[in-house]
């Protein structure tokens, strides 16, 4: 049910991307996103697409899987296509009937935008599907360390983020269980009058909140019992270290981005 949402979920594996350091992956993903916004020609998009799809299959994420992750943005994509083809003025698509109001530029623009959206999403999910949430936040914390000198509580923010990420599946499980137990008590979530349905959703939300507070309380006690007091004098069990995999990934990315920039330069 809810758990079938696969976008961005960590997939265990042992590929080059899995083995490389989260800091490298975060930086490379950022570079990739910049490239996505730099690209304007069809050829560059073709290159970007094949790059993402090849890497996806290399890390054990077949195309079917990648496409399934895109489902949630389908609606946004459709909306963008409709608005763009109607709103953007330019050369008419065809000199016939309703097509006179639709512009060629609008179609091009919307296709590129949808492609961009798809690339951003799959690029980001390459990061999250090869990195556990814990090492992701470790990587973020390490990258944001310079901000500490501006008195920004980087460690605390990273801890909050990793707790939040850690509890998403737990809360989803709990939501599903409460959902089912209220459905067993004849709560109807699909049919019936809207007021009644709203009340039925309340019967899931209230216990979910109660449960979330209970868990937060238990977690706080458990952390205090282990003498957690923020970042003061804290050492790490897993130190982040660069390895061979990081250099290979960076090299691949360097070659790819220079190729892309060349293409864009030639085009303009």
């Amino acid at each position: 049910m809810i758990k079938d949402l696969l976008m961005g979920r960590y997939l265990p594996g042992n590929s080059m991307l899995h083995r490389s350091d989260p800091r490298t992956k975060i930086l490379l993903t950022t570079v990739f996103m910049v490239l996505v916004f730099l690209a304007e020609g069809y050829l560059s998009f073709l290159l970007l697409l094949s790059f993402v799809l090849i890497i996806s299959s290399r890390v054990g994420k077949p195309l079917k899987h990648a496409l399934r992750g895109v489902k949630p943005i389908l609606f946004i994509a459709l909306f963008m296509i409709v608005v763009n083809t109607i709103a953007v003025k330019g050369t008419p698509l065809l000199d016939y009937g309703i097509f006179r109001h639709l512009s060629r530029e609008g179609v091009t623009l919307s296709v590129l935008m949808v492609l961009r959206l798809f690339l951003l999403l799959t690029g980001a999910s390459l990061l999250t599907s090869t990195t556990t949430p814990i090492s992701l936040t470790d990587g973020l914390e390490a990258l944001l360390k310079p901000l500490k000198s501006f008195k920004i509580p980087v460690h605390e923010a990273a801890m909050m983020m990793s707790i939040a990420l850690r509890f998403i599946p737990v809360l989803l499980d709990e939501a599903e269980r409460i959902f089912k137990s209220q459905a067993s008590r004849c709560a109807d979530f699909a049919f019936g009058n809207p007021l009644q349905r709203a009340r039925n959703y309340l019967s899931v939300l209230v216990p979910l909140f109660v449960g979330a507070f209970r868990r937060a309380d238990e977690l706080a006690t458990a952390m205090e019992a282990r003498c957690y007091r923020g970042n003061a004098g804290r050492t790490r069990m897993k130190r982040l270290e660069l390895s061979c995999a990081d250099f290979t990934c960076t090299a691949v990315m360097l070659v790819f981005s220079s190729a892309l920039i060349c293409i864009e330069y030639v085009r303009s």
Partner: peptide, 12 residues
């Protein structure tokens, strides 16, 4: 009628 494990979590 189905009573789930830890049914007390369904009270609201």
């Amino acid at each position: 009628g189905l009573v789930f494990q830890h049914p007390e979590h369904q009270l609201f």
